[in-house]
């Protein structure tokens, strides 16, 4: 089911949570809404799910105007950030809830409900825990119950609010891969909210980056990473070191170096450039611009190098085993070349 959002606006008191957002999500797509807290991503998700209502604008789900319709009429499944499991019901009853309160009559028979729920619990690998209560489950298990519960009513759109936010790093990684597989298997249009750029880039077909209620950029993970549309997007996606620069067409002058630009910039004059650590090349002392090594931090397989380039702090990353890395020592003079940068008018 496709989702069409046009000109959606939402204010809470004096605070504009969603500011004239246009967005279209294709049928079967896995879309991430990415942004810092307060960027309006959760509000937008709740508007799609029918939990909040837009002040103005229009929402089409599968071509049907759903701007003001009740949530159950939209056939969406919603997974809450803190799962919102019914704490007085077993895992089984949680998943069965949507089937038991179904408005279309006749409601499914008990045997049908049983088959359906156990099938879903098999899918999320929790069948042996069907009679447990939510407080007897781990965070990851609760997350999977919440997902099974949302899928029980066979939604045409699946919405997840910070699905992995409350989990520790290891569980998060496993569940991420697993959600990706479930999405592939069922083909249901899925939108999830996250503030973790790595999560969005790894999991989603396309990423929507939100900032102060507005859409900054929409694109595939590769597009938004390689061609960030604004300084905000670049910074938020791990843009690297932020430096003042002078824009000059297809290149920029940074601390006396001429650096080719990865993005297209209109205009000339003062600007802001972002240089990712991987784009900082360390050369022998005579080559490139002269820089001093301020500090060395071995982190796992990498060597992070803090450089002082004419008063500017720069960060570079090398393979610890590489020939360039071996001879370095703090205080030493080296040469530096910047392969590319993203730059924006100041």
């Amino acid at each position: 089911m496709s989702i069409q959002i046009s000109g959606i606006n939402k204010r809470f008191g004096g605070f504009t949570a969603v500011d004239h957002v246009d967005l279209s999500i294709a049928s079967g797509e896995l879309m991430a809404l990415l942004g810092p807290s307060g960027s309006g991503k959760t509000t937008l998700l709740r508007i799609i799910g029918g939990l909040d209502f837009a002040d103005s604008g229009q929402l089409l789900i599968d071509g049907v105007d759903s701007t003001v319709s009740e949530p159950h009429a939209r056939r969406v499944g919603f997974v809450f950030q803190h799962y919102a499991l019914f704490r007085h019901m077993t895992v089984f009853e949680n998943v069965a809830f949507g089937l038991r309160v179904a408005r279309r009559r006749p409601r499914p028979a008990e045997a049908a409900i049983r088959d359906k729920v156990m099938g879903l619990l098999d899918l999320v690998q929790l069948a042996p825990l069907a009679q447990r209560y939510p407080n007897q489950l781990s965070g990851g298990q609760r997350q999977r119950v919440a997902l099974a519960r949302a899928l029980a009513t066979e939604p045409s759109v699946l919405l997840l609010d910070e699905p992995f936010g409350a989990l520790d790093a290891k569980v998060r990684k496993d569940l991420r891969r697993w959600l990706r597989d479930i999405h592939k298997g069922m083909g249901v249009t899925t939108v999830f909210v996250t503030h973790d750029q790595e999560e969005a880039l790894e999991l989603a077909d396309r990423v929507t980056i939100l900032h102060q209620g507005r859409v900054e950029q929409v694109g595939t993970p590769a597009e938004v990473y390689d061609h960030p549309a604004s300084a905000f997007v670049c910074d938020f996606l791990g843009g690297g070191t932020r430096l003042d620069c002078t824009l000059a067409g297809d290149h920029a002058d940074i601390a006396g170096l001429t650096v080719p630009l990865a993005n297209d910039v209109d205009g000339r004059g003062a600007g802001i450039a972002f240089v990712r650590p991987h784009d900082v090349e360390i050369l022998p002392a005579a080559a490139g611009a002269a820089a001093r090594i301020a500090a060395l931090h071995p982190v796992g397989p990498e060597l992070r190098v803090d450089l002082d380039l004419a008063g500017h702090r720069l960060e570079a990353v090398l393979d610890r085993q590489s020939p360039e890395a071996i001879g370095l020592s703090p205080g030493a003079l080296v040469g530096v070349r910047l392969r590319r940068a993203n730059a924006y008018p100041a």
Partner: peptide, 16 residues
Amino acid sequence: RDEEEAAITLGASGWQ
């Protein structure tokens, strides 16, 4: 309000 909202997205009426 999470649990009530969850119930409503799953199709429950207000009384339910």
